[in-house]
């Protein structure tokens, strides 16, 4: 087939934007997802020389997903499509709405660090992404939940609450959310 840019491309009669968003109850088997995820991890592993590089790749991959999920949950699960402007509410949206949409359940816990007002923790004792992953001994710090950390980060960025999110092995898996200083300062102004 010889297609060049001058040839008109046959487009579907209805564009993707014409389709309704109402579906979303469709589910696939967890083995299908686990195998796909494993291929993704292997793909990035073959392209990275260190554990942190691999985690960064997974994080970036998750980011792409989160950026799209945000639109999806805002339009579908929050019919008013109202944006959250309070930091705590944004975090609660992540913990419940986002987590339910992606993983079928709420995240286990949301905690605020005692010693640092810009740090929050989202705790998930049994994350889906780590369920089938056995971490090799020489790569002890590897956490495939970096992928989910990327998703959270994209959602927070998209809500205009820029933060750094990283995954850690602590009480299962903990996502550490570190907001930028101006986010905290701004949040105090709204009270």
């Amino acid at each position: 087939m010889n297609i060049t840019n001058s040839n008109p491309v046959i487009r579907p009669k209805t564009s993707i934007l014409d389709k309704s968003l109402s579906r979303g109850k469709q589910e696939v088997s967890s083995s299908a997802f686990a195998l796909l995820f494993s291929e993704i991890v292997q793909y990035y592993q073959s392209r990275s020389s260190t554990v942190s590089e691999l985690q960064n790749h997974l994080h970036a991959h998750g980011w792409e997903i989160g950026a799209r999920c945000l639109d999806l949950i805002l339009i579908r699960d929050r019919p008013s499509a109202k944006r959250e402007i309070k930091l705590l509410n944004v975090l609660l949206t992540v913990k419940s709405t986002l987590w339910k949409a992606l993983f079928g359940k709420e995240a286990d816990k949301l905690e605020h660090a005692n010693d640092d007002e810009k740090t929050y923790y989202i705790i998930e004792s049994e994350p889906l992404l780590n369920r089938y992953i056995s971490v090799p001994k020489d790569k002890g710090s590897l956490n495939c939940a970096s992928f989910a950390a990327g998703i959270i980060e994209a959602v927070l960025d998209g809500c205009n609450f820029p933060a750094k999110v990283s995954a850690h092995w602590h009480k299962g898996t903990t996502f550490m959310v570190k907001f930028q200083d101006h986010v905290i300062a701004r949040d105090k102004l709204i009270d």
Binding site: E27, S30, F33, L36, F37, I40, L102, G104, E106, L128
Partner: peptide
Amino acid sequence: MSRVGGRSSTDPKKVSGELFSLTYGSLV
């Protein structure tokens, strides 16, 4: 902070189809 609501009854053997297609999409 306490947990709001219990675990949903979603089948643990199932995964959101949207998570699946978005994951595949960013892979491509």
